[in-house]
Computed example of a mutant assay.
Amino acid sequence: MSGIGSTGQRACLAVPGADERKLAKAAALDADEIVIDLEDAVAPAGKRAARAAVASWLSSGVRLRGRVAVRVNTPGTSWCHRDIEACVRLETVHSIVVPKVESAADLAFVGRLLDGLELEVGRERPVRVQALIETAAGLAGIAGIVAATPRLDSLVLGYADLAASIGRSVAAGPGAWVAIQDTVLVAGRRAGLAVVDGPHLGVAVDDTFLAGVRHAADAGFDGKWVIHPGQIDAVTAAFTPAPDRIEWAERVVTALSEGHGSGVGAIDVDGQMVDEAVAAVARRVLARADGGLR
């Protein structure tokens, strides 16, 4: 990882794996990432059928605008290894989202399984991994989780299951989650990972939704999951820097690079003394501006 923590995940649309109509609609949407859900969105009796349907759909030559991730079932369930095997066989799948990650051992298991399956099928591009942090145990073990596998690209904060795990109301406002958000953000940034905010549980693009999106962007998240196509544009806009901010970042990075070439560690840009700390902020702005690049 670059340490900047951006993987082009501004708006990530979660789509039920068992709903063919929603999958077909998602293919034409401008989300940076489509997250096909084989876990919570699929009833136990329908797991096998949903997996087969998703595999068939992704193998059919469908053209998608965004990257494809698949939320597999939790490690230790009877479906997880079959889900992962199906994903490895699908070149369209860029990453798997592992739910309820609670320890480094969970991701170590996933990494070993991916290693063997990729060798078996001769896959050239490794499957990347995203970890859903959505339990108290996951929060407690996050220092080990972020170092568990070199395949790990992103942490995703899952509010619904986390609320149940710690006994907090799902209706709690953004302020109730600040400490937890900072825990995940700091751990992710220290490991050079992207950190993505979990979805707002309503489908409307109302003041509550927009306030949550702005809070996540201001807090430092790289993007946010959404559960309704109508929310994509607002999230993409919130996590895309304004043109003047991009121009400032480009000037900072260029000026400091030239300064370093002349043996100067800090340099004046637009009346502001710029050093490596400011340049790190500028590089993050530029990484976020490139959020749609794949």
Rank of each mutant, 00 (worst) to 15 (best):
residue 161 D to W: 09
residue 115 D to S: 07
residue 102 E to T: 10
residue 115 D to R: 10
residue 170 V to H: 11
residue 168 R to C: 03
residue 174 P to V: 01
residue 141 G to V: 02
residue 166 I to D: 04
residue 169 S to I: 08
residue 158 G to Q: 08
residue 105 A to S: 12
residue 125 R to C: 11
residue 103 S to Q: 03
residue 174 P to L: 00
residue 98 V to N: 03
residue 143 A to K: 14
residue 145 I to D: 00
residue 166 I to W: 08
residue 142 I to V: 13
residue 170 V to S: 14
residue 150 P to W: 10
residue 101 V to G: 02
residue 102 E to F: 04
residue 160 A to L: 12
residue 166 I to M: 13
residue 171 A to D: 15
residue 142 I to R: 00
residue 95 S to F: 04
residue 123 R to A: 10
residue 106 D to A: 10
residue 95 S to V: 02
residue 167 G to T: 12
residue 100 K to R: 13
residue 132 L to C: 12
residue 107 L to D: 02
residue 172 A to W: 04
residue 164 A to D: 15
residue 131 A to G: 09
residue 156 V to M: 12
residue 109 F to C: 11
residue 104 A to I: 00
residue 134 E to R: 05
residue 112 R to Y: 06
residue 106 D to T: 14
residue 140 A to T: 14
residue 112 R to M: 11
residue 108 A to E: 15
residue 172 A to N: 03
residue 126 P to W: 01
residue 144 G to I: 00
residue 152 L to S: 04
residue 118 E to V: 09
residue 148 A to G: 01
residue 166 I to Y: 10
residue 160 A to Q: 09
residue 112 R to H: 12
residue 101 V to P: 01
residue 152 L to H: 06
residue 110 V to N: 04
residue 164 A to W: 09
residue 120 E to C: 11
residue 174 P to K: 00
residue 154 S to V: 12
residue 154 S to R: 14
residue 112 R to G: 13
residue 106 D to H: 12
residue 133 I to Q: 02
residue 128 R to W: 08
residue 160 A to P: 00
residue 97 V to T: 14
residue 140 A to Y: 11
residue 156 V to N: 05
residue 154 S to I: 07
residue 104 A to H: 01
residue 139 L to C: 07
residue 170 V to A: 15
residue 113 L to T: 14
residue 174 P to Q: 00
residue 176 A to I: 10
residue 109 F to R: 14
residue 126 P to I: 01
residue 114 L to C: 08
residue 126 P to V: 02
residue 154 S to C: 15
residue 151 R to H: 07
residue 111 G to T: 07
residue 155 L to N: 04
residue 146 V to D: 00
residue 112 R to I: 06
residue 133 I to C: 08
residue 98 V to Q: 04
residue 123 R to K: 13
residue 131 A to Q: 02
residue 108 A to K: 13
residue 103 S to A: 11
residue 108 A to I: 14
residue 108 A to G: 09
residue 111 G to Q: 09
residue 101 V to T: 08
residue 130 Q to D: 15
residue 115 D to T: 10
residue 161 D to S: 06
residue 127 V to G: 01
residue 150 P to S: 12
residue 175 G to A: 09
residue 144 G to F: 00
residue 113 L to V: 15
residue 142 I to H: 01
residue 130 Q to G: 14
residue 129 V to W: 11
residue 168 R to F: 07
residue 121 V to G: 03
residue 118 E to F: 07
residue 118 E to G: 06
residue 98 V to I: 11
residue 151 R to S: 05
residue 99 P to D: 04
residue 153 D to T: 12
residue 116 G to C: 08
residue 132 L to M: 15
residue 107 L to G: 01
residue 174 P to Y: 00
residue 134 E to F: 08
residue 132 L to S: 10
residue 97 V to N: 09
residue 147 A to C: 06
residue 141 G to K: 02
residue 143 A to E: 14
residue 123 R to L: 11
residue 139 L to T: 03
residue 151 R to I: 05
residue 139 L to F: 08
residue 125 R to N: 12
residue 163 A to W: 10
residue 106 D to K: 05
residue 143 A to N: 12
residue 120 E to N: 11
residue 140 A to P: 09
residue 116 G to R: 13
residue 135 T to E: 06
residue 173 G to S: 13
